[in-house]
Amino acid sequence: MSAADQRRREERFEQFLGALLRVGVILAASVVLLGGVLYLARHGGEPPEGKVFRGEPADLRDPAAIVQAAAGLDGRDVIQLGLLLLIATPVARVGCSVVGFLRERDPTYVVLTLIVLSVLLYTLIFR
């Protein structure tokens, strides 16, 4: 493969990463907006909650529980699903980068991106 081919391939891959980020953000923002409408429709007239820190309940903290809870279409649960999608967007980008560097046969960067990916996955499932 010539250097020019290699560069074109890298460029195509970079464009793909850009598109992935764009799609992730638009999807997440749409879900958050939908959740916001549901939330305000049901709770909009209530007095604002206290601003003292209590920590969110368990079903708004754990990725698996958030996905499950959102199926109930309660506004707060749907918003949290959108936020989870948002947090997952850069993680997906790093995951795709691992594949990209594998295809470029670049072992150093495969290892570097795998390290970053492990840290990100660890924090998402961390208790």
Binding site: G35, G36, Y39, E56, L60, D62, I87, V116
Partner: peptide, 24 residues
């Protein structure tokens, strides 16, 4: 985005992310 996602996972697990506030 990647830097923020690393700490956001921990914030989420510890209940720092409130949907009612984070949405607007």
């Amino acid at each position: 985005g990647v830097t923020a996602a690393a700490s956001a996972g921990i914030y989420l697990a510890r209940g720092y992310i409130d949907p009612g506030l984070a949405m607007p």
